[in-house]
């Protein structure tokens, strides 16, 4: 099983490495969104590990996008420094928000996080200076890198940015994977299943929840910063409720139980969106997402990642039944 999984990740990585060679121009954007949204979806899962569902995660991503753009354009930061700084800004804002939000649980946390996110988003809408109001921030520069002997690498070139994003995504996934296997990740898991028991053996539940929330926000904000430098713009509508609900759909359809779930969900459903666009039924996408979401919850509550296991169980049961009969 572990071998199969490792093989799967390696194949996916190899495929991602060669993908630019046969992608059409319109699919290039999709491939890049996919890479960055994998990070967002995976970090979203980190919050759900503790049993809480945040509806402010895409806004956190927006915080990274805005922060990075403003650091570069208003304060003259280098893009390479602005992006990690923006991720820290996202983490800091998450830390501040954690004080009111983690007084809440379950449905209350969900609505609270949604409200906090909307308040931030409305602030971008309202203040033209510095956030640019509804049009947002335009002409955000792409990163550049001067390598001695190679000259200047300009990342506004798509394939260069693609490999940058690929490296970023792989690094983020690896870090989140390590984190989940660490003591922290195991504690989060304990909190999810038995929060009172964890508390009674001396785990500071609130502190660990905050930690997961802040780390997840760091990754989401970093991905958001990458977005803004790729697209060259950031506006409030890119980070609205619709996008948040899409991320929710990806994560739930993929499955939150294992690490692979959100990645599978994001890749398959983003690919499906692209197919729908090519076929020309783009306007039905939300409804198709809705139907997939409902069918998943009804028939495959653990998500797509549980499908192989279920099929294997089913086969084993059949094999077991046949000799008996």
């Amino acid at each position: 099983m572990a071998h199969e999984a490792r093989l799967g990740w390696l194949l996916a990585f190899a495929f991602a490495c060669v993908a630019p060679n046969f992608l059409s121009v319109s699919m290039r954007d999709v491939a890049l969104y996919m890479l960055l949204y994998i990070v967002v979806a995976q970090s979203f899962r980190m919050i759900t590990l503790t049993g809480d569902w945040s509806l402010g995660h895409v806004v956190t991503m927006g915080v990274g996008a805005y922060a990075s753009a403003l650091l570069v354009k208003k304060l003259g930061f280098s893009v390479w420094i602005a992006m990690p700084s923006a991720a820290l800004v996202g983490a800091l804002i998450a830390y501040i928000l954690s004080f009111p939000l983690f007084r809440l649980k379950g449905n209350y946390f969900l609505i609270g996080s949604f409200a906090a996110g909307e308040a931030i988003r409305l602030t971008w809408f309202k203040y033209r200076d510095p956030f640019g109001g509804p049009t947002g921030i335009l002409r955000i520069p792409a990163p550049e890198l001067t390598v001695p002997g190679l000259g200047t690498l300009d990342f506004s070139d798509w394939s260069l940015f693609y490999y940058l994003a690929l490296g970023f995504t792989v690094l983020c996934l690896w870090l989140m994977w390590r984190l989940e296997r660490s003591r922290i990740g195991l504690t989060l898991n304990a909190i999810h299943w038995r929060d009172l028991l964890a508390e009674s053996v001396g785990v500071d539940v609130r502190r660990y929840k905050t930690l997961a929330f802040v780390i997840a926000s760091f990754f989401a904000a970093f991905a958001g910063a990458m977005f803004s430098h790729y697209l060259g713009s950031a506006n409030p509508n890119q980070f609205g409720l619709a996008v948040m609900l899409y991320v929710l759909v990806w994560v739930i359809v993929g499955g939150t139980r294992t690490f692979a779930g959100p990645v599978i969900g994001t890749v398959l459903l983003t690919a499906l969106s692209e197919i729908l666009r090519v076929v020309g039924v783009d306007e039905y996408r939300p409804a198709i997402y809705g139907i997939i979401l409902i069918l998943t919850i009804l028939f495959l509550p653990q998500g797509l990642e549980s499908l192989p296991g279920r099929v294997r169980d089913w086969c084993a049961r059949r094999k077991g039944v046949v000799p008996a009969a």
């Binding site: 379950g106 969900l110 939300p286 409804a287 809705g290 409902i294 919850i297």
Partner: peptide, 21 residues
């Protein structure tokens, strides 16, 4: 409760698209 909420998100998408259609 979380399952119910997710169901209602599905219904939201479907109702919007049906109306647009």
């Amino acid at each position: 409760p979380l399952g119910g909420l997710i169901m209602s998100v599905g219904a939201l998408f479907i109702l919007q698209v049906a109306t647009v259609d």
